[in-house]
Simulated assay, not measured.
Amino acid sequence: MKRERDVYYWQERSILKNLNSEWKEHIVFKIIDKDGYEGIGAATPESLYGETFKTTMAVIELLRRLTENFKDLGNLYDFEEQMNNLVKKDMASKTAVSLSICDYINNKKSLDISKMFFKKQKAENTTLQKIFWKKDLNILNIINKKNIKIEFLEKPSYKDVLETLKLCGNKNLWLDFRGKYNHYELRKLLKEIYTYNIIAIEQPVPPGREYHVSDFALDYAIFWDESIEKMEDILRINNIGTGFVLDITKFGGILNIKKALELSNLIGAETMLSTRIEHPQNLKWSKKIENSFDFIDIDINHYIEKTSK
């Protein structure tokens, strides 16, 4: 059977700096039709959600066949419905394919999907510099913004947290604990750090234990990240805390993050647009939609040396 278009996919790596990791692997997906119009998308597998580069590549092969033979990629909703029937969990593979189609539509029809789907702009929003923390990792040389988000990649001791906050001085601090503390540990820590300018706490307890924060939820803005993997999770914990952290790859592309944003806005929750260490093609879309969110956490230039094959 003759294909509707050609499809290619491959691996690219971001060479990292200011981290104790050498690189990050991305999957890149490209479409070319018979008239020469192209679209390209990319995403990064995340082990936290059960994704590896090998599993994502295997899933991409399924989506390659669908993308090659789907009649009209302009019917993006119909395509994503079929894609979701084929693939349930691997959001990195779905994101790479979905973004390539959005890019293809932009190039072929001069139709900017981001402007169509993200018309509501926030009058004000806050941009934060992302700082990853690990034991013995030097962060002092990269702290240069007023608003800082510290993401604790491993569980810090109380002493580690206090020493880290001292380095930040009078910055406005967003602390992402990634659910590494239990309720009692966190409550004790908050008594130690209350004098700092803490604007929000992200994922204070592990997923499934969100109600444990009720005794200090009124004292801090609380945002959930790892607790939300699907739309139903937003409704499940909508009355606990302040808002939700959304990123394009976690939700599987532009259409799904649009739905998550609309649902969050509908229930009156605040939103942060975040990102993994991503490929530039992925970050391009985050930058296109950033002004629809209350907080923006996609500043990772200080971690990427270069991205290439």
Rank of each mutant, 00 (worst) to 15 (best):
Y194Q: 09
L137H: 03
I105E: 05
K115I: 05
C102K: 14
N85H: 02
G169V: 01
I143A: 05
Q121Y: 01
K89A: 12
I148M: 05
A123G: 05
K108A: 08
I142E: 14
V97W: 11
E51Y: 06
I142R: 14
E68G: 01
K180D: 03
K188W: 06
S93P: 11
L153R: 09
E154K: 05
S98I: 00
T52Q: 12
I60N: 06
K149P: 01
L128I: 07
K134S: 07
Y77F: 04
E163P: 01
G179V: 13
L63Y: 03
F177W: 08
Q82R: 12
G179S: 07
F118I: 06
K89I: 10
N125A: 00
E61S: 02
N141S: 15
K120Y: 11
L153C: 05
T52A: 08
E185P: 09
L190E: 07
T126L: 04
D112Q: 11
R65A: 00
N106S: 09
I148S: 10
E151H: 11
K134M: 13
E81I: 00
T56I: 01
K135G: 06
F177M: 09
K171D: 03
F177C: 04
M57T: 12
M116I: 02
K134G: 03
K119D: 12
L140H: 11
F152Q: 08
Q121V: 13
T67C: 10
S157D: 05
E124C: 05
E124Y: 12
F53T: 05
M57R: 14
N182D: 15
K94Y: 00
Y181D: 03
S93V: 06
L63W: 02
S98A: 08
E185F: 06
H183K: 14
E151F: 00
L173C: 10
L175C: 05
K109G: 01
D112I: 01
D103S: 12
P156C: 13
M91F: 02
W174C: 10
L165I: 12
L73Q: 07
N107R: 07
T56Y: 04
F117G: 07
L162P: 03
K146T: 13
R64C: 03
L186N: 11
I143F: 12
L137D: 04
L167Q: 15
L162M: 13
Q121H: 04
G169T: 02
L76S: 07
L167H: 10
F132C: 01
L175I: 13
